[in-house]
Design a protein around this nucleic acid. Structure first.
Lengths: 343, 343
DNA sequence: ATTAGCACTCACCAAAGCAGAGTGCTAACA
DNA sequence: TGTTAGCACTCTGCTTTGGTGAGTGCTAAT
């Protein structure tokens, strides 16, 4: 692959910057006026022609200016971009807000999401820790009424799940306590998903000591747990997209918002199996067809090197990557810290 | 106020019906063609002129057809509308889906919301029972770690709240149990909001028997409860508004969707302090300025004559009231029943 | 009281003309 | 040989113009 010379890089950088700011195709004349590149529009035109041939920029139509292609954005992000430092005032605000003592994990997640969309002006996504991957700290069983039991799973991620499920009425309070003790001893510290599989094996033998109905309630309990804990994610600023001219087409806006209602898909987009610290997906790089007009930047939050969840923003490919990355980087660190303080 | 003669009523009815269906201003000629009114366009025109003067219909501009005014819709809803029976197939579907055994209240609410938007094709809103008004069935206290306690409030509405809060580390397990027992005995059956106020009075005297720190943790507990239980409501089908031409203006669509992000406001709109069974708010009747282009139909769900929450739809004033009312009526009954079966 | 007829109004649409920004190419320049 | 000025050309976006169709109000006939 041909290496771009410095001047081409400089021009590409200017184009991307300008387009990110203005959303209008950028032409050679205005480029040379606005930025002090030291070369004439004609020269810029020549270089632009090359850049276009190489696929870094596009012309919406003859006699229009140029627009970065996804490939162009990619190069920009990888080599040309400068991370924008957030203003100190805002750094402080983010920090104090996020490190405030939240009693509930949910509150932290929700507030992070708010802040993220507020500071980036894109749509933010915060993915809660997966229930299944969380490790059991403690389990409690309580009778709610004749027919229902409440189980309380306290986990190491701060998640607390409390599935309610039906049970036959002939379980005594004593039974419950025994079962809970047994479960705690046996499974504390284990990821919930493992517990479920292990339980099947354990059931036959060890659980025999209990009332015979125990056989039945365990699967019921996990089914209830499963049911209630579908993907939980926090979105903010979905309506921000109306601020971007690329979504001023009604059907585009609709498609975007409809997409934002599909938790499954969103969660797949923001999660990176590769597992780097920061993931940038630009337009057509996206696996999800319907998001090929968007870019996504996402990061993880973690405790003790275990990745708990993800947070990120989604917006037009014409995204202010430099800014978003800085904000996201801060927030992911702070979330990790907030969770650490807690556990 | 002048009473409208039958013919005027008939014409108004036809106008509203037609406009609800087509979203286009309706003229005298097409009206007489489409509906078999037995009078000529010219006569219709005369009547229309009267109806306009009386404020029941409007002309977007000279030489356009007529459009119902909010006053016109109101008359239609009060006197002219016929309730549309939902197709049997759908009635059955709604019934079976809603009376399915849901372990969690949240699931019932969420699913109701889905169904409601699906069957009406508007945006649906389901308001969960207010925590504060719910009555305590049972309370449990559990230690999570050195610094945190988990309280579990089980209420009569099926709501389970589990606030986590900080406590000084020197509380024994025994203490906890005693406190819980005390609270249960004293407050079971009481609305949570009352408990909180009563507690302040009780604190000084009766709680003296416990460890001195009890003074401190009670307010803390309720603060945590308060914090976590902001208005919880379930929206579905927000993007449905894109299907209506009255929202094909980008800023209108944006305004609507932005409004839908404000739980406070929505909850105020859908709740009727007057307290009838079914509430219909048409356009400018709405207290909320930004919703004066919308109509809202809402109903309650209840158990033992106590209103627990609300459900409803919001859409353009050109709403298919007859249909919405039928669906809503069914659903509100079924929700009430589902909750009754449970408690 | 109703209706046919008629002149008139206005939104909507398509075609036409115009201005502005941008391009590619050629030829001159350093 | 790389750079730049000049120029003809292209294409979008905006405004103008004219025609069409649905609808109205009024008047006069039924």
């Amino acid at each position: 692959m041909m290496m771009l010379n410095d001047r081409k890089l400089m021009i590409l950088q200017a184009i991307v910057r300008d387009y990110i700011e203005s959303a209008e195709p950028v032409g050679s004349r205005s480029l040379s006026k606005k930025y002090d590149l030291g070369i004439s529009p004609a020269t810029i035109r020549n270089e632009m022609a090359d850049l276009e041939e190489l696929g870094y920029i596009l012309q919406p139509h003859t006699s229009a200016g140029r627009v970065p292609s996804d490939k162009g954005y990619r190069l920009y992000v990888d080599q040309l971009m400068e991370i924008k430092q957030t203003a100190d005032k805002n750094r402080v605000k983010i920090k104090t807000e996020l490190l405030r003592q939240y009693n509930e994990l949910e509150q932290l997640l929700q507030y992070t999401s708010r802040l993220l969309s507020e500071f980036t002006s894109y749509t933010s996504i915060v993915l809660a820790p997966q229930v299944k991957k969380s490790r059991l700290k403690q389990i409690k069983l309580t009778r709610i009424d004749d027919a229902h039991l409440l189980a309380i799973f306290v986990t190491n991620t701060g998640l607390i799940q409390n599935p309610v499920f039906r049970v036959p009425p002939n379980l005594t309070g004593d039974d419950l306590e025994k079962i809970a003790n047994f479960l705690n001893q046996k499974f504390a510290g284990m990821p919930l998903e493992e517990i479920e599989t292990q339980l099947v094996q354990t059931l036959q033998t060890e659980l025999a000591q209990f009332h015979s109905t125990v056989h039945d309630i365990m699967p019921e309990m996990f089914r209830a747990l499963e049911q209630m804990s579908d993907i939980s994610l926090y979105l903010s600023g979905t309506t921000n997209i109306f601020n971007f001219p690329e979504f001023s087409d009604l059907t585009r806006a609709k498609d975007f918002l409809t997409l934002m209602e599909e938790k499954q898909v969103i969660s797949r987009m923001i999660t990176d199996p590769g597992g780097g610290q920061l993931k940038i997906t630009i337009g057509s790089e996206n696996q999800v067809q319907r998001a090929r007009e968007c870019s996504i930047v996402s990061a993880t939050y973690q405790v003790d090197d275990q990745t708990l969840g993800w947070l990120g923003v989604i917006g037009p490919t014409r995204m202010d990557y430099g800014h978003v990355i800085d904000v996201l980087d801060q927030m992911s660190r702070l979330m990790s810290q907030a969770l650490k303080d807690k556990s």
